[in-house]
């Protein structure tokens, strides 16, 4: 059937389009030439050595990692109680609250970044780790909330009530009954939160400095002026981090997207 063959061709062409730039970056990072070449001419790991020798890259990787971990922890600490309150209690303006907590998903990051720059300047926090962190917590909290909320189903409420009736204190019920039920949603939400913070440029760029910078912002500032294989090496590392994160997601909660719901 022609339609089916055509579909197959389009699908594989699109898959190739999705993978091509990443292959090009990893390939170009291995080139022995001093300029970017793809396919690479000669093979060398020198550019990775150069990257590791440059302490500013190592520092930026450190900042990005610390920021993403702290933002994820913050998002979990905020989203978890909010999800419990929304799923378990009826209170006024619940829908408004949910909209407030989810709206960073649709807000242009450039606008939020600009707002936080101005605001943190007024607070004396301008271009500090704290300024970066609060912004990142705001943008990644919706990911955790979105994946935890659907797992707090009304049916599971009965289990929580049983636990309370049997004399468990609220915190024990949370730890022993609620947490095991939402572990999957919490894990995938936290992984999405981590990676969203790790790759962010448009929010971070406002509150970074030459000394305090994340790896995507450093790359952005660098790429605008010079392009060399070191950049490709740094980019390749971030692609590797993405790959590891996906494997982690698959191993912990499984990749259920695009497959039929159980």
């Amino acid at each position: 059937m022609i339609a089916r063959i055509l579909l197959r061709i389009v699908a594989w062409a699109v898959m190739a389009y999705l993978v091509l730039p990443l292959v090009v970056i990893v390939g170009a990072s291995l080139t022995a030439t001093s300029y970017l070449a793809f396919p690479p001419q000669g093979l060398t790991l020198d550019w990775y050595g150069r990257m590791l020798a440059d302490t500013s890259y190592v520092a930026a990787f450190g900042t990005s990692t610390a920021l993403a971990l702290a933002a994820t922890a913050g998002a979990v600490l905020l989203a978890l109680p909010a999800a419990l309150a929304i799923a378990r209690h009826d209170f006024p303006a619940k829908r408004t609250l949910l909209s407030l907590l989810m709206s960073p998903l649709v807000l242009p990051h450039v606008v939020l970044g600009a707002a936080l720059l101005q605001y943190c300047a007024a607070l004396g926090l301008m271009r500090s780790f704290a300024a970066l962190l609060v912004g990142h917590v705001v943008i990644v909290t919706p990911f955790v909330l979105r994946s935890v909320l659907p797992q707090l189903t009304p049916e599971q409420r009965a289990l929580e009530e049983a636990s309370a009736d049997l004399g468990a204190r609220p915190f024990e019920t949370f730890l022993l009954v609620v947490l095991p039920q939402i572990r999957g949603g919490l894990t995938s939400g936290a992984i999405f939160a981590f990676i969203s913070s790790w790759i962010n440029v448009e929010l971070s760029i406002f509150n970074t400095t030459a000394e305090l910078t994340t790896i995507p912002v450093k790359l952005f500032n660098y790429v605008q002026y010079t392009i060399d294989p070191v950049i490709a090496a740094v980019s390749s590392i971030t692609i590797a981090v993405a790959a590891v994160t996906i494997v982690l997601l698959d191993l912990t909660v499984g990749l259920h997207v695009l497959s039929k719901r159980r």
Binding site: M15, L18, V19, L20, P21, L22, V24, I25, A28, L36, F38, I195, W198, I199, N200, V201, I215, P216, L219, F220, V223, I227, I231, A232, S235, T238, I239, A242, A243, T245, I246, L249, D250, L255, V257, L258, S259
Partner: peptide, 29 residues
């Protein structure tokens, strides 16, 4: 299922990579 899973991984890989890195790939291309 294995093929679909492979494709989902390849779909998520760019999604989990910074748009600066992805745009950089297109600058080369």
């Amino acid at each position: 299922n294995a093929l679909r899973r492979g494709c989902v991984i390849l779909l998520l890989l760019p999604l989990f990579t910074s748009n600066i890195v992805r745009s950089f790939g297109w600058m080369i291309l």
